[in-house]
Design a protein around this nucleic acid. Structure first.
Length: 232
DNA sequence: TACCAGGTGACTG
DNA sequence: CAGTCACATGGT
């Protein structure tokens, strides 16, 4: 076999993927965090980094009382970087946290609710204007901190979509995002759960080296079919 | 021991 | 616009 045949998924297939994951894993209780501050800081710190490393950094921030954007705003860059060292890329991430805190302080009087209360597209655009906040982090914040239906795409989501054999119209973030958005009703609870399920599945089963044995997607997956039944 | 983990921005041709 | 690189820690 050479080039696997990819096909554009139907609305039904996008729904079926969700159903299979939900049946296999149940509700995921995401995001791991208590409130908007927790979620936003976590979203920035977890960029290309294992969540356990982020938890250590969050715990350090909490323990040292740097547990508000006002506190972050008032903490020196190198000191802040030291507090979040365990999350990796700590110099860059300190700058990102400062960027968020500065926007909040300077343009929203430090009131998180005011920023998060913006219409979804406006909020997303504001977040993307902050240095170090790209599309995934912006969508994490829009969905999990603001509670608005923006579908999150990450490495895990791309990996699953690619292995299923779904045709994507390009390689950009938005190309993967529209695959879902164009086929689902914009529902915050659904987007929340869908992304959580995809991440759980990719972390536990659809790993870099996939564990296809017993995978709940085997029957609808191009990679799984090729790996297991050579019945093509 | 390399590889991997819930990315992003800068720079190049 | 597509490819490549720096940024950095901790677990397996």
């Amino acid at each position: 076999m050479t080039a696997p045949s990819t096909t554009t998924p139907s609305t039904e297939e996008v729904q079926t993927l969700y159903d299979r994951l939900f049946t296999a894993y149940g509700p995921q209780r995401w995001w791991p965090g208590d409130g908007p501050f927790d979620v936003i800081v976590g979203a920035i710190l977890t960029q290309n980094t294992n969540w356990t490393n982020v938890e250590k950094a969050l715990e350090t921030l909490r323990r040292t009382g740097v547990w508000s954007f006002a506190a972050i705003h008032g903490t020196q860059r190198d000191e802040l970087a030291e507090l979040i060292r365990s999350s990796g890329y700590f110099n860059q991430k300190a700058r990102k946290l400062h960027g968020f805190a500065a926007l909040l302080e300077n343009e929203f009087h430090g009131e998180l609710d005011q920023l998060l209360g913006l219409p979804m597209d406006e909020l997303r655009a504001r977040l993307l204007g902050i240095w170090g906040i790209g599309e995934e982090t912006a969508d994490d914040i829009v969905l999990y901190a603001s509670g608005k239906p923006s579908f999150v795409i990450d490495t895990y989501t791309r990996r699953i979509v690619d292995r299923l054999g779904w045709r994507v119209d390009g390689d950009a973030y938005g190309d993967y995002q529209s695959l879902f958005v164009e086929r689902l009703r914009p529902d915050t609870a659904l987007f929340n759960e869908y992304h959580a399920l995809l991440d759980h599945h990719a972390a536990e089963v659809c790993r870099p080296t996939p564990k296809c044995d017993g995978c709940c997607l085997l029957e609808i997956c191009l990679t799984g079919r090729n790996t297991h039944h050579e019945s093509s």
